[in-house]
């Protein structure tokens, strides 16, 4: 049976006169990896920031894990967010903290009374997953772009979320590292059986990770389908993404 973890209906969002989303619909099933494809400035990032509650939508409903995100109180929102991982485009590692402290941060925040030993085990496990155990006491500035992305991924995974939202995970990386990250994402999803929304315009990444693709255009879901279906599409608007 397929459970819907994210359900978005008729989402509207605009910044001043710039209308970004106008009546966007989306459904994410458990265990499904959905890629949202779109041009720069098409509102992809806005979409996932609305899902996690960083941005309040102007209209429409966002239902995540049975909760209506815009209607939640701060406490309820925090509790829901524990179950959602978010990988930022710029990694958003805390510059003033070591890798270990970066990984600790979400844990400390969400489970204040977590005991030290268990926390260290979790950190070790998360770093193991991304293959960077040796960076434990390094500062983020000492790491390369790819390593930082992996640390960010490890931090996202540390709370074992049900849903992971990836904001352009391979942007700014060289193609080889991008493929490594994509593979890593795929492995993790299989390992933890998470659902995910991947915002990207990197077709290689999408090809590796996505089960289904939605093309976001003019504030709506313009086309939908698997990678192969969309590659085969005759629509010129769709085709331009795959050239």
């Amino acid at each position: 049976m397929e459970e819907t973890v994210i359900s978005i209906r008729n989402l509207h969002k605009s910044f001043g006169n710039n209308v970004v989303l106008k009546g966007f619909n989306l459904d994410l099933k458990r265990g499904e990896n959905l890629a949202v494809l779109g041009k720069s400035g098409s509102g992809k990032s806005v979409l996932i920031k609305c899902i996690i509650g960083l941005l309040a939508p102007d209209g429409g409903t966002i239902n995540v894990l049975g909760q209506s995100i815009p209607d939640l109180s701060q406490d309820e929102l925090d509790r829901t967010r524990v179950r959602i991982g978010f990988l930022f485009q710029s990694n958003a590692l805390y510059d003033s903290m070591t890798v270990k402290e970066n990984l600790e941060f979400p844990m400390r925040r969400h489970w204040l009374s977590a005991d030290e030993k268990k926390a260290e085990e979790k950190i070790a496990e998360a770093l193991e997953n991304v293959g960077l155990l040796h960076t434990l006491n390094m500062m983020p500035v000492e790491l390369s772009g790819g390593m930082r992305k992996r640390i960010a991924l490890a931090r996202t995974l540390i709370l074992k979320p049900d849903i992971i939202l990836y904001d352009e995970p391979t942007t700014g990386l060289d193609p080889i590292t991008a493929r490594e990250i994509s593979t890593l994402m795929n492995n993790i999803q299989k390992k933890y059986n998470t659902s995910s929304i991947i915002i990207s315009h990197d077709m290689n990444c999408i090809k590796i990770t996505a089960d289904r693709i939605i093309i976001l255009m003019n504030g709506r879901a313009y086309a939908e389908g698997t990678y192969d279906e969309l590659v085969a599409s005759a629509d010129p608007e769709v085709k331009q993404f795959f050239d």
């Binding site: 967010r81 978010f86 710029s90 958003a92």
Partner: peptide, 21 residues
């Protein structure tokens, strides 16, 4: 500068997502 760069590199958003105000 610190808060500015945290804002720009989405660290502030990351905190919010991590259940921190």
């Amino acid at each position: 500068a610190e808060l500015g760069s945290m804002k720009v590199t989405e660290q502030i958003d990351a905190m919010e997502v991590s259940g921190t105000n």
